[in-house]
Design a binder for these strands. Structure first.
Length: 405
RNA sequence: CGGGGUGUAGUAUAAUGGCAGUACGCGGGCUUCGGGAGUCUGUAGCGGGAGUUCGAUUCUCCCCACCCCGACCA
């Protein structure tokens, strides 16, 4: 894409109403726009990143046998009354329409469980894994930390429907691995740890995926060797013993919860009457699990972890473009841009008529992994530089195309 | 939701009970061009309401918005 045609502009200064690094950098570089506290628009660059993250997750969920759907934002209160979660005292962060006529997608256990009553009748219909990328609306009393705690956010939520606790366990286990894979592919694998947290009513513990960062809201106790952590909320002698960890080796860290997986058991299938008939003809409740990743929070977490004082440093896997082609003289890189495009290399071509300093600063701020500079100095070669590296390399067009396509 | 703070141009900021200034941006001119260039010029602003006052962007009150700490977060 030609940068001269990109409608967003970078800002020279960070916004005064954002403190978090991800909020400041993403707004300053033109990835997102703040509508209100905790409510953000995704602009062209931001949407590209969001879609890349979404695709990584989609691939991993599909590998697990997940089937993608898209549910509604408006929800039927009747279903929520059945589970006892319509009451504002039970779910405190509801958005409801006037006169409580509809609920606005706080989460989707109730409608999905209800929906599956038409499709799951026999043990032959199970197991089933259903997921979606859908907007969640939650009235956070205090939205904060840029993209990391919003009132409106896109979540990948997958729900598993199994016959037995063992079957649930097996899927839960596979999903845990898939999640670790998502975070690895998103570039924060080396900082993200499986964490034991409070499990709710069905199980003692649930799993969270916590990314080490000072910007996080959570405190975990981490065993770096075993790559297991315990959330502060369940950290006690019992949990340490259960997980066979050594208290001495645990280090206290601040972290961002980038995902979680829960065993729900029959909490919702009982409430809404989702049952199946087993081999011997006995009717049993379906056993459920839920598995969430907030896309915006993940995007924010990546920026928190991968950035420096000049801007963002995207991993290639989620970067809006693979290369940032910067020409220091008008039109000088046009031919190379066409070659790169033809070779299928995602390129942001800075064809704007600005000074070198402005272009370099923008490139650092936007944070595309590879910077290619074409100027009179480079003659018929290209200067290649990794965003987080100092050294540059001068290579020919052919070598470049070969390396990047 | 409790406590605290802040609202001035597109952005970031300054000052003031009496003509609201600076920088960047944006438009135009000339000179520049490897780390946010120089110069001339133009453009654009006091969150909303009520009160005090001869006069309020400034003081008081209410509302709204945003930020921070806490609480909350299947």
């Amino acid at each position: 894409m030609r940068q001269s045609e990109l409608f967003t502009k970078t800002r020279r200064t960070a916004p005064k109403d954002e403190v978090s690094k991800n909020g400041r950098l993403l707004i300053q570089a033109g990835y997102i726009n703040k509508e209100m506290a905790g409510v953000y628009d995704y602009l062209p660059l931001g949407l590209r990143v969001l879609k890349k993250i979404e695709n990584i997750i989609r691939e991993e969920m599909n590998k697990l046998g997940g089937q993608e759907i898209f549910m509604t934002t408006l929800q039927d209160p009747t279903l929520w009354k059945k589970s006892g979660r319509w009451d504002d005292k039970v779910v405190t962060d509801w958005f409801k329409t006037r006169n409580d006529e509809f609920g606005l997608s706080n989460t989707h256990e109730e409608p999905l469980t209800n929906l599956l009553k038409n499709h799951i009748l026999s043990y032959k219909d199970l197991p089933v894994y259903v997921y979606q990328f859908q907007t969640k609306l939650r009235y956070e009393l205090r939205a904060k930390s840029g993209l990391m705690r919003g009132r409106e956010f896109i979540m990948k939520d997958l729900y598993s429907f199994s016959r037995t606790p063992e079957e649930l366990d097996r899927f839960h286990d596979k999903c845990r691995k898939a999640y670790l894979n998502v975070f690895k592919r998103a570039g924060i694998g080396n900082k993200t740890y499986l964490t034991y947290a409070s499990g709710g009513s069905f199980t003692k513990y649930s799993y969270e995926f916590q990314t080490l960062s000072e910007a996080g809201e959570d405190i975990i106790y981490l065993d770096k060797t075993k790559k297991i952590a315990i959330n502060k909320e369940v950290y006690d002698e019992e949990s340490v013993q259960t997980l066979k960890l050594n208290r001495e080796k645990l280090i206290r860290e601040r972290s961002i919860e980038v995902g979680n997986i829960f065993k729900l058991g029959t909490r919702f299938s009982d409430a809404l009457g989702l049952k199946y008939v087993d081999k011997s003809g006995i009717e049993r409740p379906v056993i459920m699990g839920s598995y969430g990743i907030g896309l915006g929070r993940l995007m924010g977490a990546i920026v928190e972890v991968l950035s420096d004082d000049k801007g963002i440093i995207w991993p290639v896997s989620v970067a809006p473009f693979k290369v940032h082609l910067v020409e220091l003289k008008k039109g000088l890189a046009r031919g190379l841009y066409e070659k790169l495009t033809k070779a299928g290399v995602e390129t942001l071509y800075d064809d704007r008529d600005l000074t070198p300093g402005e272009k370099f600063n923008d490139a650092d701020l936007i944070g595309i992994p590879w910077r290619l500079v074409v100027s009179e100095k480079t003659k018929n070669k290209v200067e290649v530089k990794r965003r987080n590296a100092k050294k540059v390399e001068l290579i020919s067009h052919d070598e470049l195309i070969q390396q990047f396509s």
